[in-house]
Design a protein around this nucleic acid. Structure first.
Lengths: 149, 149
DNA sequence: GTAAATGCAAAGAATTTGCTAGCCC
DNA sequence: GGGCTAGCAAATTCTTTGCATTTAC
């Protein structure tokens, strides 16, 4: 009997499909933190009869393979991010855009504690809320930014 | 014409109802960060024919009146918290319980910045993820904690 | 060739909404 | 008494699932 060595998901062999590759490409090329619906819209430009179910399934696969992370802001819609490094986000309360924060905060001792009164800390999630530069510029005008941008 | 002074939600006068009072009482007396469903279950003990829609509506009202805050962990279900002070949370990855972190972190300069590369910061949200004391104690045993606790 | 993935549509879960009757101020 | 709220149920929204067919390896 041939010995099988498979480090992740031992019982199941994953196949690369055109759909999965497309979804991964879309996700990794955008700076947005898109919803499944937006990814679906983009994917249909290249592959008009891809289905929404497939998009959801592949986004899940990417998340469980550690190639993307799922974020939830406000309620309802999940957003996906191909940037899997620990990083913080800035959420604009006016236009809804989500930005990655580039400045590192990793050395902050408050954030790097490993214990607190509640238990053992493994990781944290930090989000700042405010108004983005883009919205500050158009302060007095109608905000041009779509919620989904 | 009588001059009306109303600081919040000018066009709409809010009324206190038995249902709203009950929901507020339930929310403020628990240390959990309950879901709408849990609040509904509790409310029905006192008021058996209260409806789920009413619970949702009143939770929203409490949030928009600044008497409660809405939290979203993972996806799907919203949780509500009568503690409206800026405070951080600890989420146990094993049992799903959410704790308020009592230790103040408000003086941390990294967290108290008012600007970042993305824009103007108004507030932040910080959550730590890990394993709570309760789960650490029952390390080898079956975890007794319900997800919904 | 065969198991895994797709497309489609239907099911599900959580939340919101429309409407009439009832209750608060 | 007027109009905000409740209760009920239907509608929406987002996501998952079942199944026959197609596809990657």
């Amino acid at each position: 009997m041939t010995e099988k060595v498979c480090l992740k998901s031992p019982g199941k062999q994953k196949r690369m499909t055109k759909q999965k590759a497309l979804i991964w490409q879309i996700l990794s090329e955008t700076k947005r933190h898109p919803t499944a619906e937006w990814v679906y819209g983009e994917a249909r430009k290249d592959m008009p009869n891809i289905s929404l179910g497939t998009v959801y399934r592949n986004l899940q696969l990417l998340v469980s393979d550690g190639m993307a992370q799922e974020l939830n802001y406000g309620k309802g819609v999940s957003r996906f991010d191909a940037n899997i490094e620990m990083h913080d986000h800035f959420v604009c309360e006016r236009c809804g855009r989500i930005y990655d924060i580039d400045e590192p905060m990793r050395e902050c001792s408050t954030l790097n504690r490993t214990h607190c009164g509640c238990g053992e800390i493994h990781r944290y999630r930090l989000e700042f809320y405010g108004v983005c530069h883009s919205c500050l510029c158009v302060q007095s005008e109608e905000c041009e930014n779509e919620i989904d941008v």
